[in-house]
Design a protein around this nucleic acid. Structure first.
Lengths: 198, 198, 198, 198
DNA sequence: GATGAATGAGATTTCATTCAT
DNA sequence: AATGAATGAAATCTCATTCAT
């Protein structure tokens, strides 16, 4: 933790943060390595000191940020709330990311879903689905949720509904004022739980 | 009509069909114009006789195929069934596209659904959402659906759930045998309608 | 001279005239064969019925039009006027082409001078210089012009002065109203003859 | 200053010098970017590090070299010689460029002199004409030159005569041995001044 | 003669990545 | 660590020309 290594830490983070903004603005393919470097205020060669490729930058952006999200999903899963409340918690976490960091959500929604390699590479996404699935299974086990639906399938449907709301915000097609975001949370939870409840 | 114009029609269609296969296989950015031409069995220059750019090929693929889908959505909306059955019909149409033309669905889900440029350009997508929204509103009006949710928001959530099932199939993460697809339809409809019903 | 062959004659001419306009507008390299065809109101394939290549179109434009000019230069040379009057006649012929057909002059000035192949190919240009040279030599022989200048060199200098006036008009850098054009003729003649006279 | 910046300067210059040779050899349109790079001994990508396009290379070739010429014209204009001597000086400067750098003159004469885009873009050419014009006006004011000719027009005629001699050399149509070049200078000056003198 | 679909060589330009300094 | 000059593979697109009809 010398000044030197702090600076090092800092530039890496600078690049990563710049990448999120540039990817959000131009898309992964439209973003040039030089754009990211410029946005970060460093020479573009430096990017290759910290990352092996442009793709690895995206992957890192994804992994580090989705990891955080996942951690919070896991915390919800570990809690001793009933399944419906857990699902509600997950929905809130997911939807609140929008106001928190719209650029990041933009990148996640736009790039990750489109990249099969990334999707396959990163177990994190699967893990997210698995958590939702296990919560649903728990609800089915304790009678809160109907048992005649496949939990895996249900987890995709539920997750998809939430993600599409984020997509609507990303695309500017759904209103995203404070009130609307709050209402979207309620609506999403209502519909999702409504469909699952016995 | 004449042999001439049939041939003309044919090559254009050949290119468009080839484009779907190549985009599905390699993604839009991974697909080279030459690949599409080769797959279609024509010289790559011909592609520019019919389309002004690679992007316009994608746009045309989208517009012409989504247009068909939309037509069928509209037919459902125009029918005099009750709202829940209409929604069910829409869900079936959407989900059955997968078995019908997996490559096309792959392209739609991967390239189009999340591309803001394309989304914005093409009113077709908005129209699809609008149809779902109007069906929901109809259901709310005649008491079939709960009135305490915003119909626009609900349309995104419902549509998102369905699309994510398609995504699951596209990514090979959800089983897509005959039985599973049939079951997915039922589940998706159940969950969606369950959430909306009064 | 059936109606058929008249039509044939006509389309060929149409193409040639269109070529002059398009070459003037876009330059030889900027002009597409399709542009010329469109301007002529024919299919671009037809161009290859009358000409073997785009370059041959330019060459034909040049040859046929410059040929006419040359014919008039020759007439002047053959006349029994004194050398200074002959030179004056040549200058007038050359400068008056501008008002007559600006597009043609534009093409001549811009493309012919730049194309070494064309220049070499077509003896017509050399012949034009040769005429000027012979007139100067005649003037030197009969004492009208000074004998201490090389007639070939002088012919280039004289011709260049005239051509540059055309260039100035082509480039829009010299005023080309009726009066100015008339004055330009006088000035060019004055300066040129003034330099040559004993 | 540093070795670094010298190298940088060098490669850029290398490219520019190579461009002159290649443009002279093949013409602007016949010259491929790769040819220029190969001639300069660099990767063709580097060309785009220093210039934004092939056209900008030509423009830079022109601007930087014509700028030098212009500087010398200006020096002549600023001198306190009489107008005829100034004109003589300008003629010598212009004509001597041929022996100095035939490739450069070739490019100037063939590509630049008649290109409306380039002409319009670059004020340098206008400035050259303006200098000649002012010298002529000075001569008219102090009685050395006849006053009944338009100085602007005269400047084009004079300049055109000189340029055409260069053109004759470029096209290989005028002999350009040491003696002939020396004689051409004298002849051009004689004719030009002869025409202007009172 | 006339059309315009079809071809394919070829050229510019982009940009991720490397590496000497 | 940091820079940015240098590389070169690769890709889109253009357009003169051909040719079946």
């Amino acid at each position: 933790m010398t000044v030197h290594s702090i600076a090092q830490e800092t530039k890496r983070k600078l690049i990563l943060e710049a990448a999120v903004r540039v990817f959000a603005r131009s898309g992964y393919h439209g973003a040039r390595v030089g754009d990211i470097a410029t946005e970060a205020g460093v020479a573009h060669g430096l990017l290759y000191h910290y990352f092996s490729s442009k793709e690895q930058v995206l992957e890192t952006v994804f992994r580090e940020n989705f990891g955080e999200l996942l951690e919070r999903f896991r915390a919800v899963e570990r809690s001793d709330e009933p399944a419906p409340e857990k699902l509600e918690g997950i929905a809130k976490i997911l939807l609140r990311t929008w106001r928190n960091d719209p650029d990041l959500v933009t990148v996640m929604v736009r790039e990750v879903a489109r990249s099969p390699q990334l999707q396959a590479q990163v177990g994190e996404v699967r893990e997210a689905f698995a958590i939702v699935q296990r919560v649903i299974e728990q609800g089915q086990a304790d009678g809160a949720f109907r048992r005649d639906v496949d939990a895996q399938l249900a987890s995709w449907i539920v997750y998809g509904g939430l993600e599409e709301v984020l997509t609507g915000w990303v695309l500017g097609q759904l209103p995203d004022g404070d009130d609307e975001v709050a209402r979207a949370e309620l609506t999403a939870i209502e519909l999702t739980l409504g469909g699952l409840r016995t």
